[in-house]
Simulated scan of single mutants.
Amino acid sequence: MLKQTLLVTALIGTTLASSAAFSGHGEKPHATPWSNFALENKIKAMPKGDALKGQKVHEQMMCNACHGEKGESPSRNYASLNGQTAEYTTKMMLDYRDGRRWEDYKQANIMVKLAKAMDDQQIADVAAFYASNPSTVWDIETQPVTAKIDRLVRKGDVSRMIVPCASCHGAHGEGKGITPAIAGQVPEYFVRTMKAYQTKHRKNDVAEGMAQFTHDLTSDEIQALADYYATLNK
């Protein structure tokens, strides 16, 4: 894994050596938070993605070193991207590029640099590539889905102002548009993401909606949801 990271870092360093787009080490750009209107217009203005060209971008930029041959994470350290909606992947790359997603520079610097090295067409292409591949179904040992978790997924919890997961992410975790697919996601990544929203270390979602919905979830509930979606076939 260290060898892969060093290779990716070396490639990105070469790509950006003569680029003025990236200034300073760990210097966070001042990006305007998304509004629903601004995000919708930006996604509509993006070029049409080509999955075959996106596969080449995936390979040339060495995305496969961390995210696998087709976006399926080969380890529990990185997100799976296969089966993800093209719009959501596009949003994530734009957020990395512009500085909206910047939870921890030491962890995210590779993604920040990759995003800055890619133009809109490359982002659209690689997003189309991931969307063209089926999601992963993780073979992990899980506890039976409890009535409480089933309720959180399908009905939410009005007493804690938690909307049902399915209302945004779909009945099968398939996602739609800029709302991400979460079926087949790496459970460890799912947990880290929920914790980042909960503590407001990650706040690139529109109006910080996820921070509100995750605020009162317990660690056990987050883990149970992670296991539920990891084994869900959308």
Rank of each mutant, 00 (worst) to 15 (best):
A31R: 06
G68P: 10
L225K: 10
K56F: 05
Q223W: 11
S219P: 01
K155L: 06
G156T: 11
S132M: 06
M61P: 00
N204I: 03
P47Y: 11
A128F: 10
D139V: 09
W102R: 03
Q84F: 08
Y88P: 02
D227L: 02
A131N: 06
E27Y: 06
T9N: 14
A38T: 15
G173Y: 07
A230V: 03
I123P: 04
K48Y: 00
Y228G: 01
Y228E: 04
S35V: 03
I12Y: 11
H172C: 00
V163H: 04
K56H: 08
S18Q: 15
Y229N: 00
A131G: 08
F37I: 11
K91N: 00
G71D: 09
A171L: 13
L52G: 01
T218H: 10
V153N: 03
S75Y: 08
S167G: 04
N133S: 02
P29R: 02
A226D: 03
C168F: 07
Q143N: 12
E87G: 04
L52Y: 00
E59C: 00
Q185W: 12
F22D: 01
Q4C: 09
Q60M: 05
K155Y: 10
Q107K: 15
H201N: 13
K113Y: 10
T146G: 14
A128Y: 14
P134E: 07
L217N: 06
V186M: 03
D119R: 14
D98L: 09
M92L: 15
A20Y: 06
T14L: 12
D119F: 10
T193E: 08
S73V: 13
S23V: 15
A181H: 10
D104C: 04
H169V: 08
D220R: 13
A117M: 07
P187L: 05
A65I: 01
K113I: 07
I182N: 01
G173H: 13
L232A: 01
A31Q: 07
T15V: 05
H30E: 15
Q84K: 11
S18L: 10
V8F: 10
L6W: 14
A171H: 11
I110N: 11
Q223T: 15
A20T: 13
G156C: 02
N41Q: 12
Q122I: 05
G156P: 08
N233V: 01
T193H: 08
R151T: 15
M92F: 09
D119Q: 04
C168G: 03
T146P: 04
G156I: 03
A131S: 14
F190I: 03
K56A: 10
